[in-house]
Design a binder for these strands. Structure first.
Length: 407
RNA sequence: GGAGAGGUGGCCGAGCGGUUAAUGGCAACAGACUGUAAAUCUGUCGACGCAAGUCUACGGAGGUUCGAAUCCUCCCCUCUCCA
């Protein structure tokens, strides 16, 4: 089936929405016009199977391709994962065992298929071809690139300039990842903007190896909940696919207000027009930033858990943080008798034992700072003896609760 | 192979024989305020102990000293310049 010119143009516009880079538009245009079913590559390291909203940005774009009938090739970098993508504070990774890779890959798929259609997704492992390469092939691969070009990569450049270590093997990473594109004959490769260098290497290697070149599309990096650094597991500023509804909601509420428009742009289907309207409304005070945020929080919870869960999360949040009520599910902690003397224990110790805080000292400091309550009353005496004959409700701040009983 | 610089708490970064559990910044946590786990301001920020205090910590192992993150020896790691 052939698509007419306008149709193709429209599709490309749609695919371009929100993208930072879009390299190789002509090739894409030609293929779409010819009615070709595209192979869209998306690669992932099997080491961190905890996807977050940053990934969602890219996954949504993949979904757009899928909805147009194209095939997603989800590449699991089990081989390249042994090196690890150079990332600032790089360290040599311990090689993953086969089982770990399998397990991580499994988890990864469980997560991406919350967004993508498994039927239109092919999963491949790059160890299939990379582990079989002999030194001659590796040398051929290496001869395609120069050190100077490698150092163009922002990450390397920075480390080189500030005299940080760069291992030679890290130079191999972009080459191997790029070689995957040669092997797969991918038509399009998608990734976060931080992947631009690697993706372009893939495009160039395809040319060197006499293949058609892939179109490279990158999506912006989403700032994390701190509003500064990119969302990432290692910065601890992420909202994960597997987070509880409560956490997705709460973490979303902790995003700085002024990031709302960006989040809406990258994580929802609002059109550019609607976004503009919203931006204005927030500025003029018509739309309270909190409202924009709680709406977004609900959208996100719904995406992973459905709208009922979203409503529930909102109610719970309002109850706890707006009306100062208690959350619904407070874990019950049983304290063994051996820890008690005469059925009693000091609050500080109790807080530590019940797992609310990491040490007794910390609990004492919290009490001094006025952050601890028992049965709704603020505790001021850090040595207060608590009789565990009956259940006690402890809270530290508004986010940590435990019901404690002797058991 | 030679010469030099350096490795400090979650991160960045001072200190260079003793009032140093180690200045400062960031992050984190709590409090106040708020229609938010936004913003802002304040406080806390090694562990154990009711406490006096004890222990653990400045790449690793030894050593010198009444006393070491600070000096010495060896080892490991990183960077720079030269060959």
């Amino acid at each position: 089936m052939r698509s007419d010119h306008m149709d193709v143009k429209h599709k490309i516009e749609l695919l371009k929405r929100g993208a930072v880079d879009f390299v190789g538009e002509e090739e894409l245009h030609e293929k779409l016009a010819a009615g070709k079913k595209l192979k869209v590559k998306f690669g992932a390291d099997p080491s961190a199977p905890d996807l977050h909203l940053g990934h969602l940005v890219v996954l949504r774009k993949l979904k757009a391709f899928q909805d147009m009938g194209h095939e997603i090739v989800f590449l699991i970098g089990d081989f390249t994962g042994m090196i690890g993508d150079p990332s600032g504070k790089s360290e040599t990774r311990k090689p993953l065992t086969r089982e770990t890779v399998e397990l991580n890959a499994r988890t990864y798929q469980d997560q991406i298929f919350k967004v993508l259609d498994p039927k239109k997704t092919k999963v491949v492992y790059n160890s299939k071809w990379l582990s079989k390469m002999d030194l001659v092939s590796v040398m051929k691969l290496m001869s395609q690139y120069s050190v100077a070009r490698m150092l163009e990569r922002a990450d390397f450049k920075e480390r080189f300039k500030s005299n940080k270590e760069i291992s030679i093997i890290e130079f191999l990473y972009p080459l191997m990842q790029g070689y995957d594109s040669v092997e797969l004959e991918s038509d399009v490769e998608l990734g976060g903007h931080d992947q631009i260098f690697n993706l372009l290497v893939g495009r160039e290697l395809q040319k060197s190896y006499g293949k058609a070149q892939q179109t490279v599309i990158t999506m912006p990096l989403l700032e994390g909940t701190d509003g500064k650094l990119k969302m990432s597991k290692s910065y601890g500023n992420y909202i994960g696919f597997t987070d509880t509804p409560k956490d997705i909601y709460g973490k979303t509420m902790s995003i700085p207000d002024d990031l709302m428009v960006k989040y809406y742009t990258l994580l929802t289907d609002l059109s550019d027009k609607e976004l503009k309207v919203m931006e204005k409304a927030i500025k003029s005070g018509e739309l309270h930033p909190k409202k924009a945020k709680s709406d977004l929080a609900k959208i996100l919870v719904s995406l992973f858990y459905g709208s009922d869960a979203a409503d529930k999360a909102e109610n719970e949040f309002d109850a706890v943080f707006k009306d100062n009520k208690l959350p619904q599910d407070i874990p019950l902690v049983k304290v063994s008798k051996n820890h008690l003397s005469d059925g009693k224990m000091s609050v500080s110790k109790l807080i530590h034992i019940s797992g609310l805080l990491d040490s007794v000292g910390e609990a004492k400091r919290m009490i001094k700072g006025g952050g601890v309550k028992m049965d709704g009353k603020k505790i001021t005496d850090e040595n207060l003896l608590v009789d565990l004959g009956s259940e006690k409700l402890l809270s530290v701040g508004k986010r940590k609760y435990a019901r404690v009983i002797c058991g």
